[in-house]
Each structure stands twice: as C-alpha cells, then as structure tokens.
C-alpha cells in the first residue's frame, strides 16, 4: 500500500481545516498535512521563499476559492504561472456551486473541482474521496527540482 500524501490545505476558515483534518485522520493512510489560511503565504510556501526556504514540496494542493486578500483563483493562476509548479495537482475545494466559478477554475488550470457539502458526513466523505483517489490509484507527477 502506498504511504500517505503530503497535502497542502489552503483555506481561511480554520473550522473547515479542522473538518478536513478530521476526515484525513479517519483515512487508512496517514497524510502529512500543512494548512495555511492565506493565499499569499501559500504561494510563498510553494515557491519556498523567505521563511519557507526549507519547506517540503507537497504532492497535492487543496485550495479554497474565497481567501482574504488574494482569492483562490489568483493563487491558482500564480501557481500555474511558475514553471516548477505547473504540474502540481490542485484540487479546488469551495462552497461555491456557481457554474461561472467552476468554469473559471478549470480555465485557470485546476485539475478538478469539489464542492464543500453542507452536511458533516458528506463533507468528511468528500475529503476522504479526494484522499482515496489522489493518494490511491492516481499517479502523481514527478517532482521538478
């Protein structure tokens, strides 16, 4: 069995990060989880700049759309704009169900889009499904270093 993933969670709602961590704790494989509540910080982390010079390179980014300051879409575009991050799998995870928001995420290079469900069980199930697919059968891109 594969070992757990290194996941970067970007969400300004600590309650949702808590729920995601709860869901991942219930998975068979244990993932290493880094959570950041701010898009600009997440970008620094990914670029390994400044205080994040020694940061690990995550295998998967789970990114919320509504973030303070720089929104998720802008962060996504910035990620795709960097050659070393162009291949990084990014799962958009957002409460928005607007067709417009979903389309824009795909346009900007998101790998997929998962809506945050309203009920606890469905939320936990959604996060587990993300882990099950990306950590399970999906083959992740080799790192660019």
């Amino acid at each position: 069995m594969k070992s757990g993933l290194r996941l970067l969670l970007v969400d300004d709602n600590p309650a949702d990060i808590g729920l995601a961590r709860e869901a991942l704790a219930r998975c068979v494989r244990q993932s290493e989880i880094i959570s950041l509540e701010n898009g600009v910080e997440a970008l620094s982390f990914l670029k390994r700049g400044g205080m994040y010079a020694d940061a690990i390179r995550p295998d998967l980014v789970i990114l919320d759309l509504s973030l303070p300051g720089c929104d998720g879409l802008t962060i996504l575009r910035a990620i795709r704009g960097l050659p070393e991050l162009r291949r990084m799998p990014v799962v958009m995870f957002s409460t928005s169900r607007l067709g417009r928001d979903i389309a824009r995420c795909y346009e900007s290079g998101a790998n997929c889009y998962v809506s945050k469900p309203g009920s606890l069980n469905e939320f936990l199930a959604a996060v587990r499904s993300i882990e099950e697919f990306w950590c399970g059968f999906a083959a992740l891109p080799p790192a660019i270093d």
């Binding site: 169900r97 607007l98 417009r100 979903i102 389309a103 346009e107 997929c112 998962v114 059968f137």
Partner: peptide, 29 residues
C-alpha cells in the same frame, strides 16, 4: 477493476465538471 471504479466514481460523482453555460448549479445536488 477497483481502479476503474474508484476513478469513475471520483470524476463523475465527487468532481464537478465544467458546464458550458454559466449560472448556478443549485438544485442539481
């Protein structure tokens, strides 16, 4: 078989594909 099942479940049931028309998806949950 498990891989196919897992993949199709994820991409058809969990993932939201882009629709060609804009507008809200409310009600299709």
């Amino acid at each position: 078989r498990q891989m196919v099942k897992s993949a199709v479940l994820y991409w058809l049931a969990i993932n939201r594909p882009p629709l060609n028309s804009g507008g809200e998806l409310l009600g299709t949950d």
